[in-house]
Amino acid sequence: MSAPLLEVRGLRVGFPRAGGLRHVVAGIDYALSPGRTLGVVGESGCGKSMTALALMGLVPPPGRAEGSIRFDGRELIGQSAAEWRALRGNRIAMVFQEPMTALNPVMPVGAQIAEVQVLHKHLGWKEAGENAVAMLEAVGINSPRERARAYPHQLSGGMRQRAMIAMALACEPALLVADEPTTALDVTIQAQILDLMLELQDRIGMAIQFISHNLAVVSEIAHEIIVMYAGRIVERAPADALFANPRHPYTQGLIATLPDPEQRVARLPVIPGGVPDLDAGARGCRFADRCALADAGCRAAEPPAEEIAPGHFAACFKAAA
């Protein structure tokens, strides 16, 4: 495997609250190599989007990112606003979940795509506009010249997401961060977008960090998968290994609760309870309250991520055994 493009160490994202910071991302480590796809799954509020925004330097104030993000041999945390701007949309680009609200409603989509090249490649609007049309075509939009002049509301959800992707890839970034890019779309359109992303990855060779709450989606496209729970990575493994042999009780539960198309059961297994409030006592394993295996040890200390098989990490005292 080639040297990592992205190396995240001890990343934390905190929001101020009475008496300190509330860490919605509480120390995570991972790495991503060029041309590879990393899937990030987890339930609502577990910190997936905040992790992604930290990579872009866009954690909403008053939130703060700490720790280390090394990208292309450079440390991103603590770099200047101008350095961030030079990187964003250029070397690291992002696709957001809601293609309706993520595009500027009063600007034609062609101009929104062209803007990226105007900003980073210092092209004129005319030339960048021509490129935008070509890019719309490359992401599979028919009559791209007319569509370039259209406003977002004149496009369907699928086309808007294609336009978002065209925008993100305008400068052929080394890393594409896709935050639930297909969640708002129908399955047939989702399949089209996934195909498109893989095809463009082949062409441009970028690394993708693909965020989703849908295990099945991630399983189809990711080489490696991270499972997040309450601000932590509870398991990280190559995709095949994760599904064949999930080691963390939460991952096991998640996979088990999904209805299996091959065999219908009377009752689905459930993970009891709900996602904990991040404010509640920070000691011990965050999953302990919902875990069938939890014992006093689990509640006393936070389990560290252990490599239980090559490339397979789990943060659970019982997984190592």
Binding site: T188, L198, L215, A216, S219, I221, F243
Partner: peptide, 17 residues
């Protein structure tokens, strides 16, 4: 529709959508 539903453990076969 059935083909488009993602499934755990399946790799994406391109161009069948």
């Amino acid at each position: 529709l059935l083909h488009a539903v993602p499934r755990i453990g399946r790799k994406r076969a391109r161009g069948q959508t």
